[in-house]
C-alpha cells in the first residue's frame, strides 16, 4: 500500500513538474515577447493600392510539374503580350544593376 502511494506520488510529481514548467515557460516567453520586443510587426503593403487584376485562373489542376509549367508559361506569355505591359516597359528603368539609383 505504502509502496503504491510512494510510486504514484513520485510519478505525479514528475509529470506535474514537467507540465508546470512547460506551462510556466510558455507563459513567460509570451510575456517576454510582449515585454521586450517593440514594433516587430511589419506593416503590410496596402492591398487596396495594388489594383490586382486576375487575368487567368484555373482551379483544382493536376499535381504534375508539366501541368504547373504549362499554366505558368501560358500565363506569363499572356501577361507579357498585354499592351499595358508594353506601355509600362517603355516607361520603365533600364539602368544596369550596378548603377546607383538617381533621378532619370
Amino acid at each position: 500500500m505504502i509502496v503504491r502511494v510512494i510510486l504514484v506520488v513520485f510519478f505525479s510529481l514528475l509529470f506535474g513538474f514537467a507540465i508546470g514548467l512547460s506551462i510556466g515557460f510558455f507563459i513567460f516567453t509570451l510575456i517576454l515577447k510582449n515585454s521586450n520586443v517593440f514594433g516587430a510587426k511589419i506593416a503590410r503593403d496596402d492591398p487596396r493600392s495594388s489594383n490586382l487584376v486576375i487575368i487567368a485562373k484555373e482551379d483544382r489542376i493536376q499535381h504534375r510539374d508539366d501541368v504547373f509549367d504549362y499554366h505558368i508559361t501560358n500565363g506569363m506569355r499572356e501577361l507579357l503580350s498585354n499592351p499595358g505591359y508594353h506601355e509600362m516597359m517603355s516607361r520603365s528603368v533600364k539602368n544596369p544593376d550596378n548603377d546607383q539609383v538617381t533621378h532619370i
Binding site: F11, S12, F15, G16, F17, I19, G20, L21, G24
Partner: peptide
C-alpha cells in the same frame, strides 16, 4: 516559481 506552483497543483491532481 509559477512552474512549481502549477507543478504542485498538477501533482496533487495526478496523485
Amino acid at each position: 516559481l509559477v512552474g512549481s506552483i502549477i507543478g504542485i497543483l498538477a501533482a496533487l491532481l495526478f496523485t
